[in-house]
Design a protein around this nucleic acid. Structure first.
Lengths: 203, 203
DNA sequence: TTTTCGAACTTTTAAAGAAATTGGTCAAAA
DNA sequence: TTTTGACCAATTTCTTTAAAAGTTCGAAAA
């Protein structure tokens, strides 16, 4: 029965997401995910070929969550500044709630296992598209002048990444998930940076 | 004889700098530094209380090198853009030549040993002062409008840090010293970022 | 035929202990 | 005062082993 099967597949994804978001890839075991659902461990392998691909599927869900939510916010924004702020806060909220799912993207602690990396359409690439979207909107409304939209988006995103890294480093907290206060501080600085940055692109 | 003593102290600092710059703190041994100079290991401990303080002294030299050279470049610059570009390229050149001395400042690999950290007037703080200098110059010449100079300098510096981290991550090269090409790429992006950033502060 | 599971198998990680390296000390000599 | 070789203690590295976790498989249930 495909319907029931899909339902179980989704159950597994949800349970795995909870575990991965809370404990990360390494500290989550297949046995634990199975126990949470009262499934047998072997059943997980009926729906997913291995742990890494299960993780990759969860990761992709989380990425989609970021992309979908930010896209909507960008779409309904009045101007570039509003779009940018909405993008930043929405994105950081999703990251905060699923921090350990992004342990390989937004923390420098560990490197992504190669077989996961191969499967994933890079989150970074998608984020560049999101920021490019904002910039293009600004160009269309004559708010901004940007010669190379994608490169500019990339520069801004890398700078924003540095904001997270730099601040977590400052707090000597590069190994624990950031606290709410740290996230707020990061968001504050990210907004300030993007404000200056956008200003630097104004027509 | 204090003069001879000072001369030997400097010899030790130079030999230590070569080792640290090439192999980093952990992979440099006191015995190796002594061998390079045909001194006994114990002599090093006559001039420096321990390995960490020797490293700290070398680190401070390297920091002074950055600060002195960039200060001079900033002083003789015509405008903010020129000052900023001179600051960035001079700074990155010194970092490139002494990369492993800055392994705790500019790479996220390892954290600074606490007793070293305590001794050091943070490089980051000094860099903030340098960028603040540039911004103040811009404010004085009416080129820029900046409300909180230090915070703005901090934001820019953190962004520039992200540029290094982000790019080294992209090259999956977070553990090796960057190549010349990578440094050039980093410098290019840093210049683009600071250009937009400075533009965003213009009066 | 599809789905599920217990048990077995293989690989990875963690722990423990031993060996080697290295940081640091000291009494004596120059 | 400066310098050293010999010595000690702390740390790191390596080896071995045990435990844990990932994965497979054949059989049974649906």
């Amino acid at each position: 029965m495909a319907k029931n099967a899909d339902a179980k597949r989704i159950k597994i994804l949800e349970a795995a997401k909870r575990r991965f978001a809370h404990y990360g890839l390494a500290k989550t075991t297949m046995a634990e995910i199975a126990q949470d659902l009262s499934f047998s461990k072997a059943l997980l392998y009926y729906y997913f070929p291995d742990k890494n691909r299960l993780y990759a599927a969860v990761f992709e869900m989380a990425v989609d969550e970021i992309i979908n939510e930010t896209t909507e916010k960008i779409r309904t924004s009045k101007d570039v500044t509003e779009a940018m702020e909405a993008f930043l806060s929405t994105r950081l909220t999703v990251i905060k709630e699923n921090f350990n799912i992004f342990e390989f993207s937004y923390s420098l602690r560990n490197e992504m296992p190669v077989d996961i990396e191969a499967v994933l359409p890079s989150l970074f690439e998608k984020e560049i598209q999101q920021v490019s979207l904002i910039l293009k909107k600004g160009v269309e409304t004559k708010e901004l002048v940007v010669d190379d939209v994608e490169l500019t988006a990339k520069i801004l995103l890398i700078s924003l990444l540095g904001m997270r890294i730099g601040i977590l480093q400052e707090f000597k907290n590069l190994f624990l998930p950031p606290t709410k206060e740290e996230f707020d501080y990061i968001l504050g600085l990210q907004k300030k940076l993007s404000h200056i940055f956008i200003n630097g692109l104004r027509a």
